[in-house]
């Protein structure tokens, strides 16, 4: 199993269960020992998920991906410590953001339910590949992506919530 197997559904499920933060560790970018380079897929998923969290009102900092090798135990410890401290500062999921619990849970559930559809959009409209982490971050916070996200994902989830108010 490669980091690329980590799925949007897994991350949303964890937040749905009430965890306050999710950390994903992957191999260094562009140093795949195979030809898979699945860490780029995971990075893309993380960027997308951050935008979803943003849309729900949850802090995207609750999701963090870092890249390291198996020999870099100290880097792992540093990254996790920094992340845990950050999440502690953010406070409990939703409450830290001052969100209404029923409402954000409803939205999280809606996005979870819509994962199959989001995958379709991802497969058809978000076929991007860059070499650098920064390029992904740039893309996922670009106007172009905003438009795609609002038109193809956010609005559909909105409709879904309207149709299924207490799912």
């Amino acid at each position: 199993m490669c980091t690329g197997r980590v799925d949007l559904a897994h991350v949303l499920r964890a937040f749905n269960n009430g965890v306050d933060g999710v950390f994903i560790g992957g191999c260094h970018l562009n140093e795949c020992n195979y030809i898979t380079n699945g860490n780029f897929h995971a990075l893309k998923m993380v960027c997308l998920c951050k935008r979803i969290m943003d849309h729900i009102g949850l802090s995207p900092e609750r999701l963090n991906m870092e890249f390291m090798s198996s020999g870099e135990g100290n880097l792992f410890v540093e990254s996790v410590n920094a992340f845990v401290n950050n999440v502690k500062e953010l406070g409990p999921l939703g409450r830290g953001e001052g969100l209404d619990e029923t409402e954000f849970k409803l939205k999280l559930q809606a996005y979870s339910d819509m994962v199959p559809y989001i995958r379709l959009v991802d497969n058809e409209k978000l076929r991007i590949h860059f070499d650098q982490k920064e390029q992904y971050e740039e893309y996922f916070f670009s106007e172009e992506f905003d438009r795609l996200f609002n038109e193809l994902i956010a609005s559909k989830v909105h409709t879904y919530i309207k149709v299924n108010p207490v799912s």
Binding site: R5, D7, Y34, G38, H41, M45, P116, R119, N123
Partner: peptide
């Protein structure tokens, strides 16, 4: 198949599954 499971995250209907994961 090398068992990386990338395909699992692309399948919109969950039809392909990586065994053991």
């Amino acid at each position: 198949c090398k068992g990386d499971g990338l395909c699992n995250t692309k399948c919109p209907v969950g039809a392909i599954q990586l065994k053991h994961f």
